[in-house]
Design a protein around this nucleic acid. Sequence first.
DNA 1: ACTCTGACTCAAGACGTT
DNA 2: TTGAGTCAGAGT
DNA 3: AACGTCC
Length: 322
Amino acid sequence: MGITKLADLIRSDAPNAVSYKDIGDYTGNGGLNLLFHVGDVGFLLHSPLTGLFFRTLTFLEHDIKPVFVFDGKPPVEKTPVLERRAEAAGWSSPKRTGEGPHDSAFQAPGDAEAQCARLVRDGVVDAVASEDMDTLPFGANVLIRQLNAKKDRYVETLVDLCILLGCDYCDKIPGLGPKRALTLIQKHRTIENVVLHINRQTHPVPLLWKYKEARKIFLDKTETPVTNLVWRELDEEAVVDFLCHTKHVREERIRHRMKTFHEHRENRREERKKEKAEGHMRQTRMDNFFRVTRKRGQVRRKLLHMKKNKKKTKQFNLKIML
DNA sequence: ACTCTGACTCAAGACGTT
DNA sequence: TTGAGTCAGAGT
DNA sequence: AACGTCC
């Protein structure tokens, strides 16, 4: 679990920091947007895999190029869990829990989350959507965008706040919840200072508190192992082969989706050509996106976070927090 | 009065047809 | 299973 | 919008 309370805090104390955008608003800007996903290898072993296929095409149709990172952990012991989840989703549990395409999947060394953050930070990708793609991405998939250069200070502040809110890497100060944490951090900036100003009776600092280690994990600036991602076009035959022949998905379904995908793409191509012919680059929706984002004047954090959010049916929303 | 916590509940994917 | 949302009760 | 199917 990530820092769940952060979502609450943002909702209550910085509602303006969130704006909702349709996924379509990213389309048509030259198709250069990258979006980023974290997944579990286990998902490739089971039925939701089909969903992954469909969703990926939806991304592509919006000029979003997804990058998938899978946790390197062996899914073996997790299998029962995944099966149960699959059942909960209304599917019969798959019989073949064999081997997924590990070799074709990119596995992140160490913590995938951290890896993702690094890729964003280094500008390799634009944004991160974390957690399964199956369940709704949420709190943990809030990942950071545009924390370059001078803004690092704010990142540090945010990190300290998150540690106070409670993260996976160290204890928190009991009795110190979101409200007080925010207030204290705003006032004192760092955990060290906060600690000096709290009532140690009512809010005892954990013994051997390893918040510095946690901080280090968050702020870790070391290597970005995967620097050069290579974009490969969709290989229809390979997909069909894997999904249909190996996983026994009905081929017609896949082909059909693939067909609409190509049609969609063709339409867009012509549209773009037509626009170009007209000569005038009219305001793209992307411009609007930035304008909206920037116009938040007094925001508490000069960070840009992105959050992917899914709505009932097929519409995707993006939350952008400044 | 405000804040924190824990215990509880609830839902949960994508497509196509009707 | 997970995570989100709500509520009651204890704590400040 | 609701529902059944997907495997």
